[in-house]
Computed example of a mutant assay.
Amino acid sequence: MNDMINRQPCDPAVSLFGQGKSSAEIWSALVSSGVAPAAAEAHVNSLLLAVALLGQGKSAVEIWSALVSSGAAPAAAETLVRDLVEVRRMQLARQREEEEHRSSGFCKRCYDESTPLSPGNISTVNGTGTMFYGEDRGCCDCGSVVRVHWVVFCGLPLIPLGTYRYRDLYGEGTSSKFLARRTQTNSQQIAIHYSLSLVVLFVFVAVVMAIRSGNR
């Protein structure tokens, strides 16, 4: 029992249990596959006992010992317990992922394409600091968009800090409170922002030079 490893279940009863089948459905499937009715019933009873003990927080060794004491063959009990523990682990992992998704504020597609990494606090002083720019790949389901997190100077983006799935909680322009999850870097979006910054900088320099020339 000490060499149990994570793997897909090979015990058909455990596999069916993981699919949400009832004990009657599991018994019927075992009998249909050629297992004797009495043996199928004994195996289902072993499964139910193992599930109950697992729910009580018993260890794999304790569950195996209880199954053997109830008459199950040691090898069959080991396979059942090993598979059941793995199925339960996968179920808990799915539950955690579903809970994280529900609390994330994003639809399933946007959640799956992003990571929980947050940009932290976003703030600027006189146009210098960090802020988001751009809107790309808007989602019709959750309303999120892809934006780039920048270090800015005088409002001009200088250094990209990452691309994020971004969702404004109170609607555009009404609040700075938002949700954001890191996603794949959008190089095209970053290039556009750099280009716009260069255009603004060029126009600013041209205006300054024109003013100076006019004052001479």
Rank of each mutant, 00 (worst) to 15 (best):
D136V: 09
C107Y: 00
V148S: 13
V125A: 11
T124C: 05
G105R: 00
L117C: 08
E113K: 12
F132R: 09
S118Q: 10
C107Q: 01
S114V: 01
W150M: 10
F132Q: 08
V152F: 01
V151I: 12
G138I: 12
V148F: 03
S123D: 15
G105D: 01
V152H: 01
G129N: 12
C140P: 15
C139Q: 05
D141E: 15
S103R: 11
E135I: 09
V145N: 02
D112E: 11
Y111A: 04
G120H: 00
H149R: 03
S104Q: 03
T124S: 06
Y111F: 08
D112I: 04
P119N: 08
D136I: 06
C107M: 02
P116A: 09
Y111M: 02
C110S: 08
T128C: 01
E135W: 03
C139R: 04
S114A: 04
F132L: 05
P116G: 10
S118I: 11
G138F: 10
N121A: 15
R109T: 15
F132G: 06
C142F: 00
S118T: 12
C110G: 08
I122D: 14
D136S: 10
D112P: 07
C110V: 11
S123M: 15
T130D: 11
P119M: 01
L117F: 03
V148H: 07
F106Y: 04
